[in-house]
Amino acid sequence: MEKLIQTIILGLLIGGVYSLMASGLTLIFGVMNIINVAHGAFLVLSALVTWEIWKTTGMDPLLAGLITTPMMFVFGWVVYKLFLQRIRNSAPSMTVLLTFGLALVLEGGMGIVTRNVFRSVTPSYFSSSFHLGPFFLPKPQVYGCIAAITFMVLLYLGLTRTWTGRAIRASSQNLSSAQLIGISSTSVAALTFAVAAATTGFGGSILSVLFTFFPASHYVWISRLLGIIVLGGMGSLPGVVIGALALGIAETMTATYISLRWATVVFYVVILAVLLVRPQGILGVKLRQDVAVA
């Protein structure tokens, strides 16, 4: 029983971090109907930058998130303007191929610039834990989860309390109506993409402490995040939190009770099962184009 509760605690902590990482992916999908397959590579890029900052200055990795966040914001904006804006009217499969190409370029680029080895950021609290009765809460997980939740709350406030945020949400709910009331769809799209990339900035900084990573880790990450947003409902922000917590628990359970090797399979199976049984996910709106008439 204690083992079970401990597993769930760890699952929830990691799920909180996942929800921040996946929020950008779902936001992009909701507003511009694009799946950014390079989202995982964005995360790894930010983790790598955090590692460099930590290595050279000794700055706390979570504090470094305050640098990587604006950095990834700008990066996301540039990526949108350079590439995605040109094909925003193409078939969805083309945007998937484009962002997949971008992920490969980033993976290769990171491998060339830094040596292609496993890294992880190990601040002083790296291997210590808080103790709560018989249970332990690893400090990096706790700090990471708190930081992620803080960032999510700020994001949520930004989306609901500002005009820009409302424009983004309006575009995600009904793009043509949003255009009719004077929202410029291209600038909203660029902004959304930048904001979503900014979440990978902070998310990547957290990642660098919690996980070892190397350039090709982005495959694992994009699979995780896709599993989460597919389960929660693509385009839904509350859905992301539910999906992230559920899959965080499922992953730690598999790792604890079955084998660490099969833990990542959970995400592939979830993606397959959800897309087949309930393609709109838990909280998503049913998209007719994603279901064949069979």
Binding site: P92, S93, S223, L226, F267, I271, P279, D290
Partner: peptide, 13 residues
């Protein structure tokens, strides 16, 4: 049974 985005993702998975 899926198409569009869902189909591409499912084939990667």
């Amino acid at each position: 049974r899926t198409r569009g985005h869902a189909f591409v993702i499912i084939t990667i998975a």
